[in-house]
Write a protein that binds this DNA or RNA. Structure first.
Length: 268
DNA sequence: AACGGCACCTGGTCGC
DNA sequence: TGCGACCAGGTGCCGT
């Protein structure tokens, strides 16, 4: 589900909502997620203060007094903000982070593709350490993209969705950015010119920033903490569309098993 | 080393 | 109304 803008929206909302920053307890409700929730998380996190909450790629990271708590929302992960301790659990609730003042962050995940991990050192964390550069950082520029495209036979869409190269871009924003930069999703990475790379980098930054401003994209499951959907969906140009702005029919192509929407006329 | 495809899950929708 | 097929925003891992 959530790509960078949705995760960014959730992180902002958590930062705004949480008043008490001391964890009372971490409660496991259903440990079965992408990785089984470690039974030692409750004892490791108990009474810890949360120093900061930030995003890295599609991961939400809580920096604690000692160590880090790392959450991934998978496809259908939702964080609910609850102020009633006795609110009954719902189907697919997986864990609670309960604070000293009684407020609770409750994680719910229908498809169980999400995860939560605890680690001492974030630089060694097996998932986070593999991540490539942040697309909104200055290090992600046309020269970087050109360099990583070199000699790559894979479609450019696969490349920008590869989290070890650049992190946070998923299927929706890959389609949108390729449309804006007028590049076909299945174009071979190595055939991109420096000019193509510049357009694509700019398009990625543009579409991500724009979506963050609108609170992310809601297709089906995504909601921010307050239950509000994101409004970016209304601004999608190709994803899920049937007709391009130019009047041409939008084509759908399976690339790497994912539906790729593009305009045969506008994208070269 | 690089790449394609599968697996992990649940639920919604569509056609018969 | 029921049932099977197919679809969904992610990604680690396996075989080639």
């Amino acid at each position: 589900m959530p790509e960078l803008p949705e995760v960014e929206t959730v992180v902002k909302a958590i930062n705004k909502s949480i008043k008490s920053r001391q964890i009372n307890k971490f409660k496991i409700i259903n440990s079965k997620l992408r990785w089984t929730i470690s039974s030692y998380i409750p004892s490791k996190t108990k009474d810890n203060y949360i120093k900061t909450i930030y995003r890295r790629g599609k991961y939400i990271i809580f920096k604690l007094d000692i160590g880090y708590l790392i959450i991934h929302l998978g496809m259908t992960g939702i964080i609910k903000f609850i102020n009633d301790k006795d609110l009954p659990y719902e189907k697919h609730d997986h864990f609670d982070i309960e604070f000293k003042d009684g407020y609770i962050l409750r994680y719910n995940d229908v498809r169980k593709f999400g995860s939560v991990h605890y680690c001492k050192n974030i630089d060694n964390q097996f998932l986070v350490k593999k991540l490539g550069c942040e697309p909104l950082d200055d290090t992600f520029d046309k020269f970087y993209l050109k360099r990583v495209c070199q000699k790559k036979e894979i479609p450019i869409k696969n490349l920008i969705m590869n989290q070890t190269i650049v992190t946070g871009i998923g299927n929706i924003y890959a389609c949108e950015a390729l449309f804006i930069s007028e590049i076909k999703p299945h174009k071979k990475s190595k055939s991109l010119t420096l000019d193509n790379c510049e357009k694509l980098v700019n398009a990625i930054k543009f579409v991500l920033k724009k979506s963050i401003r609108d609170g992310g994209t809601t297709l089906k499951d995504f909601k921010s903490l307050d239950g509000k959907p994101g409004y970016f969906k209304q601004k999608l140009l190709v994803y899920g569309k049937q007709l391009c702005g130019c009047g041409n029919e939008i084509k759908i192509l399976k690339i790497g098993g994912r539906s790729s929407f593009y305009c045969n006329k506008c994208q070269k």
